[in-house]
Design a protein around this nucleic acid. Sequence first.
DNA 1: TTTAAATACGGAGGCACCCTCCGTTTACAA
DNA 2: TTGTAAACGGAGGGTGCCTCCGTATTTAAA
Lengths: 195, 195
Amino acid sequence: MADDAEEMGRKPRADAQRNRGRLLAAAKQAFAEKGVGVSLEEIARTAGLGIGTLYRHFPTRDALVEEVYRHETSQLATAAERLAAELPPVEALREWMLLFVDYLATKLIMAEALGAMVSGREELHAASGTMIKAAIATLAERAAESGAIRLSIAPLDLLRAVFGVSNASAGPGWEENAKRLVDILIAGMRVPPQG
Amino acid sequence: MADDAEEMGRKPRADAQRNRGRLLAAAKQAFAEKGVGVSLEEIARTAGLGIGTLYRHFPTRDALVEEVYRHETSQLATAAERLAAELPPVEALREWMLLFVDYLATKLIMAEALGAMVSGREELHAASGTMIKAAIATLAERAAESGAIRLSIAPLDLLRAVFGVSNASAGPGWEENAKRLVDILIAGMRVPPQG
DNA sequence: TTTAAATACGGAGGCACCCTCCGTTTACAA
DNA sequence: TTGTAAACGGAGGGTGCCTCCGTATTTAAA
């Protein structure tokens, strides 16, 4: 019944666990308030810890970001499963992409992280990135297999395109535009009714 | 015949002119080799000048970038005019977007700059940004006026989407994908024949 | 409890970069 | 030739990144 503690050989010292939590909390708030570019020193200070401690727990800035956003990301993955089960393939794909836009909009904090994972350097944010990629790939491929759309580009590129529109775009209407883009993309991929 | 020296009240001192040129040359090469993030100190050193001189000529990193890329950008603007004159509206729009992809691909050096100008902080790269925006806006609006497509998103968002796919995307096939995305976008905006 | 090994902590220190400020040098016009 | 506006250069102060290692704490064995 020791399923909670996924495979970990040793036992982390109590103080280490506590401090890890403090760092994550401080980081989450700092990222939200100032973006993923905040000074790591500031995060450590906010957590009441030394910079060395931060670096021991999270050797790179991205390791920290990864940890902070893993939870949020998994919500997107969960939604993908639900949509796939409840809706016809193309609709599921469309809805999930719209949800993706919502995530970029609502949790502006996530935009940078999602962006980084969607656009390049895949090594970073490995875990979250894998979830997202799996979600969009599955949905897109199911939609393609249903015959309703033709998948002429890599599924992840759909998200890249959507992210491109959201990315720091100044205009207050970007969310609207991003959602319209989703529909343009779906329409552009649709197979014409009479072959 | 004094058309070369666009309106400038005073006369810049000879050494100032020469050094400005050196800085631009050094910057162009450095940007090409190491991206727009290079140390400005290194650029100044390469140009055989002091860091203070660089900052006097180009108060911000972006002022320097702007200057370096203004020429390249104007080529895109010129191409837009030519295509608009030679091709039917939708084709002109499509071709120019493909050309945009080529620019991102060929002059990888430009990708960062074009990206920055296309995605947000419009104040930076003002001059180049204006050119690009004017080009896509004109082409897109002409295509929409022809009745062949429906322009449901901001023209610039088309470029944002394309840029999103190109943006640091690791895969070697990104250029292909970006071009296919252009066709998906065009197809997605096309007005159905018997609307 | 005592004790010693294992582990974690903290922050000084070295490095890189940014940008400013101002004393020195230079170009050029009178 | 000479006075001065303009340009130069780099030291200096600030911030951030990351490493390293002496000190402090926890844990478990005796």
